[in-house]
Simulated scan of single mutants.
Amino acid sequence: MACAAALTLAGCSKDTENADSAQLEVRMTDAPGDFHRVVLDVRQIEVHLKDEKEADGWKTLGFTPQAIDILNYVNGKSALLVKEDFAPGDIKEIRLILGPDSYVIGRDEQRYDLKTPSGQTSGVKLKLDKTSLRQRETFQLLLDFDVAKSIVERGNWKPGNDKKERYLLKPVIRVVAQDLRGGLRGTVTPAAALPQVLAIRSTILGPDTVSTSADASGAYQLGALPSGTYRVEFFPSTTAPAGQNAYRNVVRTGIVVTNDQVTELSTTSLN
């Protein structure tokens, strides 16, 4: 669970108001799924400053509990959850505490409550590798929630059953360092196809996938990508009107992403 979500770490903006402190930002963004709305009941955010086994190492951040519709934060958008001065030093983990009121609105316009397995009531923990906050610098932790992988439909659920029993919430979050500032962007035609866009990079641990969706103008953008060669896949989420060519899935290969640069893709035709 922890190894799949995005947590992005960016340094370098200066904080001159307090020369002895660092500044910490926590943001949330989303990889889309097949729902109209996905609302997370976020109650608390904590970071761990000591070794994993030391229970007293958790520090609660200044976060206001709120319901967040994360489908509002795709295609490069993110929600600012926390921004506060922070003592310099290492952060070992971050923990997201979710309440019982998370839910989705399905394509059928019905509301389905999201059940959280009992093993996750203590929060979603994400380990951080060599994360150090330094004086007079700002660090950003971006929580990239993968909707398609995080919301699991029960195999034995049928229409007419209790709606509260249809979906389980098993948060999947990918961890990436923001100092890897590669990215890619482009447009699709026709824009009405509203495709999901996946960028897939092969690694020794298996495929590393980042996703977003094109907006109403056909534009899309993916950020915080490690350098490498990607396969970019496009999956239309709508069907073409009668009398027009059908929309099709498209795969583009050999897309090179370089650190600190945004790769521009030529327009991709989906019909």
Rank of each mutant, 00 (worst) to 15 (best):
M1I: 02
D15S: 14
T16Q: 13
N18K: 07
D20P: 00
M28G: 02
D30V: 03
A31W: 03
H36I: 03
H36R: 08
L40V: 00
V42F: 04
V42C: 04
R43W: 01
H48G: 02
K50C: 07
D51V: 06
E52F: 12
E54P: 00
E54V: 10
P65V: 01
P65G: 05
Q66I: 06
L71G: 02
L71K: 00
N72T: 03
N72H: 04
Y73M: 06
Y73Q: 05
V74L: 11
S78E: 01
L80V: 01
L80A: 07
L81A: 04
E84D: 07
D85T: 01
I91M: 13
I94L: 00
I94S: 01
R95Q: 07
R95A: 10
L96R: 00
I97C: 00
L98S: 09
L98F: 15
G99F: 03
P100I: 07
G106I: 06
R107D: 12
R107E: 11
D108M: 09
D108H: 04
Q110K: 15
K115H: 13
K115W: 09
P117V: 07
G119C: 09
G119E: 15
V124W: 06
D129E: 14
S132R: 15
S132Q: 14
R134D: 15
R136Q: 15
F139L: 14
F139E: 09
L143P: 00
V147K: 01
A148G: 07
S150M: 04
I151E: 02
E153D: 09
P159V: 08
E165Y: 09
R166F: 13
Y167I: 12
K170E: 15
K170W: 12
P171F: 08
P171M: 11
V175Y: 12
L180A: 14
L180F: 13
G183D: 09
V188R: 05
A191M: 04
A192R: 08
A192D: 11
P195V: 00
V197F: 05
L198F: 14
R201H: 12
S202T: 15
S202I: 14
T203I: 12
I204P: 03
G206T: 06
T209L: 13
V210E: 09
S211Y: 01
D215P: 00
D215I: 00
S217I: 03
S217C: 06
Y220N: 01
A224V: 07
T229A: 13
F234A: 02
F234S: 01
S237V: 02
T238K: 07
T238M: 04
T238G: 03
G243E: 08
A246E: 13
R252I: 07
I255E: 11
T258S: 10
Q261L: 13
Q261H: 13
V262S: 08
L265A: 05
L265E: 10
T267L: 12
S269G: 09
